[in-house]
């Protein structure tokens, strides 16, 4: 194990969020079991009070999750010099088998926690807690993931040994080695990928606006926003990073969050995460539009979500386009290695 202050901070954050989620789930389970809005029982009163605690706890967990996602990548980046052959997060995460799975779980949990908050907000709009059971079922589904993430993260940091020879981002995300997911994505040709990205984005945005104005095609937009999220991540590896680094061979998705590139990565990723959470949130809320206590409020909330998602995607695309246009790199032809 490497006793690095930032590693300690990471583990602390992971344990705190799993502890809070476990605590919340425990009371969530009680709510699932005993909730009865009609009853004036003491237990019902206690449970109603507990919902405030749980939603406060989970808003903190959600905030912590977002911060810790970036702290995790930051830590991996900072520890690059400790490992032979690792130059940035891409290499450090590969030090042992737990690095990348932790990252995947962190992203997944962030999205799930965001969804929960969307559901929670909608639930608070109605006077009779219309979504309370669904909300706590979702929480019970999320909890194991967050605990698993904490376990994976501990395994990753505790199993770290300096000086293990790892591959650096130059070799893992480069076209030369065509094995592993990283290289597969990087070897996707930049030109067609650009078409897919811009085509997909225009379609998604148009769909989102259509939904916002006409209130039709909500599920489609939710699905599209998820697909677009994946496409955008792939595009970052495939061509967006090239323009930011101004290097036709450097595909690393982590180096863009470093100081040398003015921390542009944070902005891009935050926009992207915000867009996907609000986009999927639409899909999660669509089935509940018929509930009487929510009818009037939910529609405007869903439309707000749609607008947020569309705006975030649009700003993301604008930044990407700006980077591409003002980059000194020009890809005129496909480089064949």
């Amino acid at each position: 194990m490497i006793l690095h202050p930032t590693v300690i901070a990471n583990l602390l954050a992971a344990y705190i969020s799993s502890f809070m989620v476990a605590y919340a789930t425990y009371y969530g389970a009680q709510i699932l079991k005993h909730w009865n809005i009609e009853s004036g029982d003491e237990i019902q009163l206690t449970l109603e009070r507990k919902t405030y605690l749980i939603s406060t706890l989970l808003s903190y967990v959600f905030g912590l999750q977002l911060l810790s996602l970036f702290l995790y990548i930051f830590t991996a980046d900072a520890m690059g010099p400790l490992f032979v052959g690792a130059m940035c997060a891409a290499g450090t995460l590969n030090v042992n088998g737990f690095g990348y799975p932790t990252l995947v779980f962190k992203i997944l949990n962030f999205i799930l926690a965001g969804l929960w908050l969307v559901l929670n907000h909608a639930d608070n709009q109605g006077y009779d807690y219309p979504l309370i059971k669904k909300k706590y079922v979702l929480l019970a589904l999320i909890a194991p993931f967050i605990v698993l993430e904490a376990l994976l993260e501990s395994a990753y940091f505790l199993g770290m040994e300096a000086n293990v020879i790892t591959s650096c981002c130059g070799s893992m995300f480069s076209e030369e080695k065509v094995t592993g997911l990283g290289s597969e994505i990087a070897s996707l040709p930049a030109r067609p990928m650009m078409w897919i990205f811009y085509g997909g984005m225009v379609f998604t945005l148009a769909n989102g606006l259509y939904f916002y104005l006409k209130n039709k095609g909500g599920y489609l937009y939710a699905g599209l926003s998820l697909v677009m999220f994946v496409i955008s991540l792939v595009s970052i590896v495939s061509f967006i990073s090239l323009y930011i680094y101004e290097l036709p061979t450097h595909h690393c998705p982590f180096c863009i969050i470093m100081e040398d590139y003015h921390y542009i990565g944070y902005l891009l990723y935050i926009l992207l995460f915000g867009a996907v959470v609000s986009g999927i949130g639409i899909g999660a809320l669509m089935p509940f539009r018929g509930i009487p206590s929510l009818e009037s409020l939910l529609n405007s909330f869903i439309r707000k979500l749609a607008l947020t998602s569309v705006l975030l995607y649009a700003v993301f695309t604008a930044f990407v386009t700006y980077e591409i246009i003002f980059s000194s790199l020009v890809i005129n032809y496909e480089v064949v290695y």
Binding site: P5, T6, I8, A9, N10, L12, A13, I16, M20, R49, Y52, L53, T56, L57, Y60, L64, L67, S68, F70, L71, F74, T75, A78, E259, Y263
Partner: peptide, 26 residues
């Protein structure tokens, strides 16, 4: 100093404080 140090520090001090005060606050 850099952002990493400040973030780490934040996690080591503000986060535990905040967590400790949630339940009493509620």
């Amino acid at each position: 100093i850099n952002a990493e140090q400040i973030t780490t520090l934040f996690f080591l001090t503000v986060v535990p404080y905040t967590v400790a005060t949630i339940v009493p606050t509620w």
